[in-house]
Design a protein around this nucleic acid. Structure first.
Lengths: 355, 355
DNA sequence: TTGAAAGCGCTACCAT
DNA sequence: ATGGTAGCGCTTTCAA
């Protein structure tokens, strides 16, 4: 089998304990012995058995990160933020994809808890049945920070953005741009999806805009769902002249559907997303969006978790909200392409233009 | 502390061993006792300590995945493929970002080896100094599969694509489209970067095309490097009329630079990437690219690793190559935007098929 | 079918 | 400064 401390100890005629200390640069060991030991370890390509170490020391230097989908750039950016903070401290990040499925999520978290991760960062898929999740975490005395998705009533650390503000900001911007029939491609029934929908509704109400209920269509996360949802939306008469999409991926899919229908973005339909993904300004039509500081969410969650992990008694849960930021790009800039926006029904009656 | 098997055993007046067996659905245990034990475990929210289990059983159910960057969609897709195969079998994937840095990579792999992962899947950043890597892996008797990046002379399992073919295919396509001054934004000095460059050179040679050496410009992975490299390229006279880019991200950056310069893609400069990332057909100009079966690479690497892990004696190393596939989109279809070059019918059909 | 003994490789704690 | 003892919580092996 592999080289063990015991082997080095026997080789050098010292005790196992001395080896253990020497390899960890413990102070209580003579410079000379330490050197000998470390040299021998190098020769033998010794690598400490981290499993044994974890078992004995009750620290695993593992952090669990639960997200719905690593392919989703938003969560990939968050993961990168977490990693940037934790990797330099010697932690490794164990990422679990829940696939937006609460049962899988729970099963994965049980595994992580069983692996004795030192802490967890969770973007929960299961807002509805989150009881079991919190119970599990509590029963095992786990340190964790929630990100992105809030779990209502959970007295937990949280890092994210106020989703109602996102919805209101995006919708308000569309209104500013002269849109009057604003639709919403809504996300899943988690706090983010619900909050953004709420913000959308409020912004409409505030400006006295009424839209038919069919203007709210369910999408999910991926662009394909945005595409499908947008195609359904395009059937409606009158057609919307603005769409606020749950996230940038959905918005990308929506734009694809709109262009395919021979319509123009933003002249016929203005589009706003959320998340400000890295590639969003390279899309067919550069996408207006609400920035959520994804990377910073990861960094901050990691910092909060570290503080939490270090404290003996859990400090009071803290909630950190980043300020959403409107990023205006071509997909919503109607004033430029449609200066006479006040002409009644103007855009609607225009013939679809072939590209 | 947390609930242990011992606690359940004491509670129920059975031995620890019986509990251990019962919880793992071992056969040698009476139906009734098993039920009692499992029920009690559920009540107490018992979760097995996987660290202790790993130490005793010498199986961690952890797989290490080393990639340069999880934000790179190509590797994210690979990771997803790996996960799709391994997660159902109870494995968790520990992803390590090397940041394209051989030293960090080695350090991370040491950690993974120390964690006693059951196997490793590696897209190595360090082709040059890969000696230490292979030595480490060999010394610790690790099971591993290389992906994407080949390590020359390493007698190891490998899953990927022949990069020279990618380069030749992309460049050949540009030639077919009538390009005569074809540049290359080359990737890093790893097997993929070198192979694609080589394929590019061969395709040029084969068609008797000569280009100035300045037509090969160094980029890296991210779109920003493609953007910068393309700007440098645009200074040259005569300007290239076609560019083969190391990957899709670089190509996206290149397109941005070209459009910013007031030029048209593909009319002035045709662009081809590599990787066929998910978002590549949603870009400003839908991107022609060479598909590498990223997801399948992940799946296949996982399968190979499983087979490798199960066999007592390491089987002969196997190399699996996926066939690269040309995906034609607007960024390279010059015939379409220059109708005078060719009859409009053919290419349009082609375009319709792609959509 | 059940269970006792013996570790897995390391660290915490306490002697020396 | 060095080392012995006693685990960490589980599984493997073998005996009853």
């Amino acid at each position: 089998m592999a080289v063990r401390m015991r082997d080095i100890a026997r080789d050098l005629g010292v005790s196992l304990m001395t080896v253990s200390k020497a390899l960890r640069d413990h102070k209580d060991v003579a410079e000379a012995t330490r050197r000998r030991i470390q040299e021998r370890a190098l020769e033998l390509k010794y690598e400490p058995n981290l499993i044994a170490r974890s078992l004995a020391s009750k620290r695993s230097f593992l952090i669990g990160l639960i997200i719905p989908d690593i392919m989703n750039s938003f969560f990939a950016e968050v993961a990168k933020g977490v990693d940037s903070k934790l990797a330099p401290l010697g932690y490794q990040i164990l990422i679990s994809n829940s696939g937006e499925n609460a049962e899988i999520e729970l099963r994965q978290i049980k595994l992580l808890v069983g692996r004795k991760v030192d802490g967890l960062i969770i973007a929960s898929a299961g807002v509805h049945s989150s009881g079991p999740l919190i119970e599990l975490l509590t029963a095992h005395n786990s340190r964790y920070v929630l990100i992105d998705r809030m779990i209502p009533n959970a007295k937990a650390n949280y890092v994210g953005v106020k989703d109602q503000e996102i919805g209101a900001m995006a919708t308000g911007h569309l209104i500013d741009q002269g849109c009057e029939r604003i639709a919403h491609l809504r996300g899943p029934m988690v706090s983010t999806g619900k909050g953004r929908l709420r913000g959308y509704q409020r912004a409409l109400a505030k400006h006295g805009l009424k839209v038919p209920p069919e203007y709210v269509v369910s999408a999910a996360h991926e662009d394909s769902t945005g595409y499908d949802a947008m195609r359904r939306l395009l059937q409606l008469k009158p057609r919307p002249d603005g769409v606020f999409c749950y996230n940038d991926a959905v918005a990308a899919g929506a734009i694809k559907a709109i262009l395919e229908a021979g319509l123009d973005v933003p002249r016929d339909i203005a589009v706003v997303g959320a998340g400000d993904l890295h590639y969003s300004d390279m899309l067919r039509v550069p996408l207006s969006t609400i920035d959520q500081s994804s990377f910073q969410i990861g960094v901050t969650a990691a910092e909060l978790l570290l503080k939490y992990m270090e404290s003996k008694t859990p400090p009071l849960p803290k909630r950190v909200f980043f300020r959403p930021r409107l990023v205006v790009r071509a997909s919503s800039l109607r004033h430029l392409s449609c200066p006479d926006r006040l002409a009644p029904d103007g855009p609607q009656d225009q013939l679809a233009q072939q590209r």
